[in-house]
């Protein structure tokens, strides 16, 4: 009797282990597969390229979404924050202002999006899903109206392109500036979400909104903070984006939305309670970035890459959720 019971629990814990680490295992397997299939995959130059071009911007947006999803909400308007920051940043530079004013203006634009979300959600009691969906629509219109239907704004060398280059194309201690920005933000958000009182409040609101309210947490204030932070982080991505491509392309921020949501939720498979975490989100972003890059190196065309990513994410989720269900 007792032997079989032990046997069972051992089996269960193996399954639990597999469920918990399925993302990590998938990650390792994928890296090995690509390393075997493509000689360039594991070279420092390629990994560096993946980090700068595929990881940094998505990761920063995903950090913001991690905070929002931890609080039990969602932000569908992160693309708008990216775009508005990018738009104001580029417009200010094009008008001859310096880099500092540009960055401040860009972040200010994202801040306004965040405050708008916060007011709609905490003052008008609109569900985060609908509030941010509405802001998404309004943001799209605003951009179309501001750019006569979606004309990109290019920064040619005639403008203040020197300060412009200063952000995306410089390095400190040999580390490119965007990567440095990411490192700082990862540490900051990790501390904020997992080591601070604010983080406790956010987690409490996500787990038990009613209880959080009754235990004296100022839910509206903390929730406003959550949405403002998310918009600001997306704004940082907007500035990095336009300083990388030297232009503002209207409605381009939305491309981050689904990937960032995907990365955050892939990250939740690391925790038993399916809570989002900064580490998990980073892992999700890395997984998506590595797969995109690997499929490209193996020679799959762009169209098949999308199928490949979909199938892969599906399999990882199936493994994690399915194994955990079996373990219970």
């Amino acid at each position: 009797m007792s032997v079989s019971a032990n046997d069972n629990s051992a089996k269960v814990s193996v399954r639990g282990f597999l469920a918990k680490y399925s993302v990590l295992i998938a990650f390792a397997v994928i890296v090995i597969l690509f390393a075997v299939a493509s000689p360039t995959f594991l070279t420092p130059a390629n990994l560096f390229n993946v980090l700068v071009n595929n990881v940094v911007m998505l990761a920063i947006v995903a950090l913001g979404l991690t905070i929002v999803i931890s609080s039990g909400g969602i932000d569908l308007s992160v693309g708008v924050s990216v775009d508005m920051a990018s738009m104001i940043f580029v417009m200010l530079l094009a008008a001859g202002y310096g880099g500092v004013v540009g960055v401040a203006g860009g972040l200010g634009a994202a801040l306004i999006v965040g405050i708008l979300n916060a007011i709609l959600i905490t003052r008008l009691n609109i569900s985060p899903f609908l509030a941010t969906l509405g802001v998404l629509f309004i943001g799209q219109s605003t951009q179309q109206l501001a750019t006569s239907g979606g004309q990109p704004i290019y920064l040619t060398s005639g403008y203040a392109a020197d300060q412009f280059n200063a952000i995306a194309r410089t390095a400190l201690f040999g580390i490119p500036t965007p990567v440095l920005v990411l490192i700082v933000l990862v540490i900051a958000v990790h501390v904020l979400l997992h080591r601070s009182v604010f983080g406790r409040y956010v987690q409490a609101m996500g787990a038990q909104p009613g209880v959080a309210w009754y235990s004296g947490i100022r839910v509206p204030r903390e929730l406003s903070m959550v949405h403002v932070l998310c918009a600001l982080l997306a704004g940082v991505t907007g500035i990095l984006l336009s300083s990388t491509v030297k232009s503002y392309v209207p409605l381009s921020g939305n491309a981050f939305l689904l990937d960032a949501i995907g990365a955050t939720f892939i990250g939740t498979t690391l925790s038993r309670e399916r809570k989002p975490s900064v580490i998990g989100t980073l892992l999700g972003v890395l997984l998506l970035a590595i797969v995109k890059n690997g499929l490209l190196l193996v020679g799959w065309n762009f169209y098949w890459q999308q199928v490949g990513i979909g199938v892969l994410v599906f399999l990882v989720l199936a493994a994690s959720f399915g194994l955990r269900r079996a373990a219970h």
């Binding site: 949501i261 995907g262 199928v307 979909g310 399915g322």
Partner: peptide, 27 residues
């Protein structure tokens, strides 16, 4: 299958399927 059979969150399961369907259309 993903939502009912495997218990994946609908938001997440249909997001993955979105990518598969969109990619297959492009292909």
């Amino acid at each position: 299958l993903a939502v009912v059979g495997l218990g994946i969150l609908p938001l997440l399961a249909t997001l993955a399927v979105l990518n598969v369907a969109a990619g297959m259309e492009l292909t």
